[in-house]
Design a protein around this nucleic acid. Structure first.
Length: 687
RNA sequence: GGGACCGUAGCUCAAUGGUUAGAGCAGGGGACUCAUAAUCCCUUGGUUGCAGGUUCGAGUCCUGCCGGUCCUACCA
């Protein structure tokens, strides 16, 4: 079979934050797949790059007080260090802020113009005169035009769920500078995707390039109606590439990011004397993108559209995976489950995570849960207890003699393992690593059973049985070697150590098909350590934010830490101070202490709890509060809260709300109700 | 509000429409003692989310509910 030529990419990590365990699902999945392809003898290169453009980078660089170029250079260095730490081996790691990328952006752009896909439209947006930049929706806050709730984001209100344009906000404030934004109109450039509709339907629905659920999703979600024009330009100032012929207009980050795949390939080609066109214009070449489900539509509609229009190869397959949850929930900084790659590596062997993810990754888009108990059990039981144990039981017994000169009779065990190889390979190819590892563990079980029935430890006591002992160990170590070949894409370091132990090349999948004999066996050293649960706990503790740690230390001791807490600046940055107001303004708001008499869930409401509040005596109020995600109703009953007692009643979908309870926090599960100190009684006014 | 996906043992997952729904881990019992408290054997555990339908036959296909995840929102 002639080797395939395969180009593989992972999504470009945004140069705005560190790599964490969520990112690693994708990079490990891709790395395993690439290593598998290489092991099979295919020509395969894995390219990636940092995604460096856009408003968020500008803001972060500003906050850090450095130039964008400096900021992204440091980030790229950290990313590459973390990836290397996990054994993720890129053939080239570039940056979207590279000359190669700029040149390719120009080329694609020219092709889109040529194809008549570009059109201009005026867009009116809020502009921050202090920061000197246009404001994306999430950078504008103000009062909801519908329900008058303050501090709502630019495009929708999480109090009343209304949607609107940021220009409709009452008293809008820039989240960047706190300034009042003004309306400005600028020309934007759009790609008329609708022109590519026929092609996109054919490409997405052919059944070859996408997982079936993704094809369905696109069909139901986008392709059944006219495709909206895609806004691919941003007026300056913007960190990115300027668009030729449009001074002070820049390509939107999602335009140049996927072109970064090509730019990174270009760099690889330059270093290896290869032709770029071999990889992006030769239809014999396969292109495989690995991405998360959140960026599906960029990679399955815009990107193929751009490639098609510019005459490049289309992706052979887009492999889409789900998200990582930790202990069944989204990663959380306060719970210590937002674990950075760097933190993990300080405490644990990367092989553990490579194997654990592999054992749970299927070909579909299901989310993957990291459960620490399972993580420990699985790694210790499968890798150390089953796989490593095979070598550990026999290697010492043949260190002096080496393997038998010819491979002995083994009852067909090795041949059966060799035969299973095709099934394992098919599972890898199909990204069903869970199946691959399951099959491999069957082989490990068979090998351990073989050792049990052959009792080499008994043979070792009888000098007359020396040949028999050597033969049993030769079989066992060959079964081990076969398993290590199959696991090599997942566990390259184990392969490396086994290479030294058995003097086996372990460079090709084919080695799983023929046994090895007559070779020396090195002194046995532990190939992998068991996971110590203490290390997991230390890693979690290390991942907690300082405030959360102080809280956990307990009420009595927390005060000591709380005197000088290392409070992060993040909350204030997320929501800058409101414009100054007078004491009279404040006096208009009548805040009262109230007791929660009843709290019930509202059927059908996603965020609301219905509260009955007492202001003392017979005076009660019904309030709908958006705190369902943060509080269990039964735990609220009886407690005191601070309510806005003179707020105009508001008719909501589920009934009349006669006030508002006060709470701090970002929303969602991050909601913290205010309550008075001991002694306050319902009806007391807050001054 | 719309859409996509998911729901199988305590947990993680299998099962081309075809025997009595299977593995691993965890739990219980035993064996072994070479091996990193590893391994091997036996074993407990299920109304396949619920209700209908199609079929000789449904975990699997269809419809409707319920629950979860994600994507989107004067769109789909």
């Amino acid at each position: 079979m002639t080797p395939r030529r395969i180009l593989v990419t992972s999504a470009l990590p945004y140069a705005n934050g560190p790599i964490h365990l969520g990112h690693l699902v994708e990079y490990l999945q891709t790395d395993i797949w690439v290593r598998f392809q290489k092991l099979r003898g295919n020509q395969c290169i894995y390219v990636c790059a940092d995604d460096t453009h856009g408003t968020a980078i500008m803001i972060s660089a500003k906050k850090a007080g450095v130039k964008e170029e400096e900021f992204i250079a440091k980030m790229s260095e950290e990313h590459q260090r973390d990836f290397a730490g996990f054994g993720i081996e890129f053939d080239n790691y570039g940056s979207t802020h590279s000359e190669e990328n700029r040149v390719l952006c120009h080329e694609v752009w020219a092709a889109l113009l040529e194809a008549g896909l570009i059109k201009e439209k005026d867009v009116t947006q809020l502009f921050d005169p202090v920061a000197g930049t246009f404001l994306a929706d999430r950078f504008v806050k103000g009062t909801c035009p519908n329900c008058k709730s303050p501090n709502q984001y630019g495009d929708n209100c999480d109090k009343c769920n209304a949607t609107y344009s940021p220009t409709d906000l009452i008293d809008p404030v820039s989240a960047l500078s706190g300034a009042t934004p003004e309306l400005r109109t600028a020309t934007h450039l759009f790609v008329e995707l609708e022109q590519l509709r026929e092609f996109l339907i054919e490409w997405t629905q052919s059944g070859e390039h996408l997982q079936p659920e993704v094809a369905n999703y696109l069909k139901g979600h986008f392709l059944s109606n006219p495709l909206r024009d895609w806004d691919i330009s941003r007026p300056g100032p913007y960190f990115g590439f300027e668009i030729p012929g449009y001074p002070d207009h820049y390509w939107y980050v999602w335009f140049d990011a996927p072109i970064g795949y090509m730019a990174s390939t270009q760099q690889w080609c330059d270093r290896h004397g290869e032709e770029f066109d071999t990889w992006w214009r030769d239809p014999e070449t396969e292109i495989h993108h690995f991405i998360g489900k959140d960026i599906t539509y960029f990679h399955t509609l815009f990107w193929p559209g751009m490639l098609k229009s510019a005459g490049f190869n289309l992706p052979t397959k887009v492999h889409i995976h789900g998200f990582l949850t930790v202990a069944g929930e989204k990663m959380s900084k306060s719970k210590g489950t937002f674990i950075k790659a760097e933190t993990y590596l300080k405490h644990l062997d990367p092989a553990y995570l490579r194997y654990y993810y592999a054992s749970k990754l299927g070909p579909r888009l299901d989310d993957l849960d990291l459960n620490f108990e399972e993580f420990q059990n699985k790694v210790n039981a499968d890798l150390v207890g089953k796989v490593i144990n095979i070598a550990s039981r026999c290697a010492k017994l043949v260190h002096k003699t080496g393997l038998s000169a010819t491979y002995p009779e083994d009852g067909g065990l090795f041949a059966a393992g060799a035969k299973l190889g095709e099934e394992i390979a098919a599972a890898y190819e199909n990204c069903d690593f869970a199946k691959a590892t399951r099959l491999i563990m069957e082989l490990a079980d068979a090998a351990n059973l073989y050792v049990d029935t052959q009792t080499p430890w008994k043979l070792a006591k009888d000098p007359d049985q020396a040949q028999q002992l050597q033969d049993v160990c030769t079989v066992t170590l060959n079964l081990f070697r076969q398993i290590v070949v199959y696991l090599a894409p997942v566990l390259p370091r184990l392969a490396q150590r086994t290479r030294e132990l058995l003097h086996a090349p372990l460079a090709s999948w084919n080695e799983s098909q023929t046994p090895q004999a007559g070779t020396p066996v090195a002194e046995f050293k532990h190939l992998m350590k068991r996971i110590d649960p203490k290390d997991i706990l230390a890693m979690i503790d290390d991942s907690k934010e300082p405030e959360a740690k102080a809280l956990e230390a307990g009420d009595k001791t927390a005060t000591a830490a709380a005197h000088h807490p290392a409070d992060s600046a993040e909350p204030l940055l997320a929501e800058p101070l409101a414009p100054e107001c007078s004491i009279d303004d404040f006096a208009k708001v009548d805040l009262r202490v109230a007791r929660v008499l009843a709290a019930v869930e509202v059927p059908d409401a996603r965020k609301l709890l219905k509260l009955t509040l007492s202001l003392g005596g017979e005076e009660t109020r019904t309030v709908f509060a958006g705190i369902k995600a943060a509080y269990q109703p039964e735990r609220l009953v009886g407690r005191l809260v601070i309510m806005v007692a003179n707020l105009a009643p508001r008719q909501m979908k589920f009934g009349l709300s006669e006030g508002m309870v006060t709470a701090a926090g970002a929303g969602g599960t991050e909601v913290f109700l205010l309550s008075p100190d001991e002694g306050a009684r319902p009806g007391h006014r807050v001054h």
